[in-house]
Every structure is written in structure tokens, then in C-alpha cells.
Simulated scan of single mutants.
Amino acid sequence: MADTRPLCISRRSLLATGVAAGLAALPLSLLPAAAWAAHGPVVTILGDSITAGYGLPQAASLPIQLQAALEKLGVPCLVRGAGVSGDTTANGAGRMDFSIRPDTKVVVVELGGNDILQGVDPKVTRANLDHILTRLKERHMNVVLCGMRAPREIGAGYARDFDAIYPELARQHDVTLYPDLLAGVGRDPALHQPDAIHPNAKGVLIIAARLAPVVAKELSLAAA
């Protein structure tokens, strides 16, 4: 969701500080795939600050918690976060080719919240997500598309058009739909940070637990 303090390390910062220093600063989940061969297939979450773990310690972030939830289901894998705080669907579409590594088997697409906050025309959001899904299919990657729900306060017409994007694209591209990323979290203040936008650690646990079976099924399809 919207944020002015990106939490992900950029290519520019790696070049500025030196490749060796940059790699030393990276969390283990971002190290080369060869170092993680024993962890099974790779799941990449292409997302915004919810994926980046805004306001949370790394251990409480969605990629880490989703991996833990999958392991509890008996599905060993590496969940790699490709989240940039503040990213819209346009930003995600623009960086997906270098943010999603070739060893990825399943991509969880978690984008759209910032489109709502910025009032992006739903037609533009739809076109961006359509591009993302088309490109992922070209790269032979399985997809879990996470839906978003626009608040009715911003306008019933806008909310209706926005909410329809995800099921329509899931049908069009024949990909798995997870209808609502924030299902079970909603607007519960006990599950959100003080900004009332980003889930807290408890909220992330709920998201990861509900999302894990869907991702597990997609991994089994990718392996078939």
C-alpha cells in the first residue's frame, strides 16, 4: 500500500555501494537460487508494501510467514519477496521482468491497493494486470492472482469496476484467483498498524495461513 519509504534494496543502491557489500546486506531469501536448492521450488510474491513488510520486522513479513505456513502444510519451498512500497500495478508491470527470477515456479501477484489510494482508473489497472499475467504466461510461470476490494466510500461505481478486474482477468488468463488478499483481516483495528492500512504481525499471520493452501495447490499443479 502507499508509503514514501521504500523498504526494498534497489539496483542503484547496490551499484553505489558495491556488489559485494550489497550482497552482504541482502536478506538470505534474496541470495542466489543455487544457495537454496534444498528448499524446494521458488514462489515469488510480486507486490507492494504488504509484501515488502512495511512497519514490521523482516521475520513478520508476508514472504517469511507464507513460507512458514507452507512448511506447516508439508510443502517445503522458498518464498521470495519482490515487494516495493508504494508500487502501483504500473510499477509492478514495469519491473516484473527483473524482479521475478527465472527459477520461479509460482508467482503470487499482490498489486492494486495503491491504485485504489491514487484513484487510478480501473481500466488502467486492468490493462496493467493483464500485461503482468500475459508476461507470466509467456515465461511459463503459474500464477495466484490476489484480488483487492475497493472501499465503497470512494464511490460505488469505482468500487464495482475495480472489484470486477480480478475475477475477470483470472477467467481470461485461466489463472488461480485468491478473491480477497485481506480476507479475515478487513478493517479490524486489532489486525492493522496505526495507519489503518497495513496489516500488523497478527494480520499477516492470518493472510499467510489463508493464502498458503491456495499456493500449495498451485505448486502441485506447477510440478505436474
Rank of each mutant, 00 (worst) to 15 (best):
P27V: 13
L28E: 12
L28V: 14
S29V: 07
L30T: 11
L31Q: 15
A34P: 01
A35V: 13
A35T: 14
A37M: 08
G40A: 13
V42M: 04
L46H: 07
D48A: 15
D48Y: 02
I50N: 00
A52V: 09
G53L: 08
Y54L: 14
A60R: 05
A60I: 06
S61W: 02
S61Q: 09
P63F: 06
Q65V: 07
Q67R: 09
A68S: 10
A69N: 08
E71V: 14
L73P: 06
G74E: 06
C77Q: 03
C77G: 02
C77I: 01
G81F: 01
V84R: 00
G86Q: 00
T88P: 11
A90T: 12
N91E: 09
A93R: 06
G94Y: 09
G94L: 10
R95C: 12
R95V: 12
M96D: 02
D97P: 03
I100Y: 01
I100T: 02
R101W: 13
P102V: 10
D103I: 05
K105V: 07
V106W: 01
V107Q: 03
V107E: 07
V107C: 07
V108P: 00
E110Y: 09
E110M: 13
G112R: 01
D115Y: 05
L117A: 12
Q118F: 13
V120Y: 04
P122C: 11
V124Y: 11
T125D: 03
R126Q: 14
R126G: 08
R126V: 00
N128K: 10
L133I: 08
T134G: 14
R135S: 15
L136Y: 00
K137I: 08
K137H: 11
R139A: 15
V143D: 00
V144L: 12
V144H: 02
V144W: 01
C146F: 08
C146D: 05
G147D: 01
R149I: 15
A150F: 05
A150T: 06
P151R: 14
R152L: 15
Y158K: 00
Y158S: 02
Y158R: 11
A159D: 05
A159L: 11
D161P: 03
D161N: 14
F162N: 00
I165N: 03
I165V: 15
Y166C: 05
Y166E: 01
E168K: 15
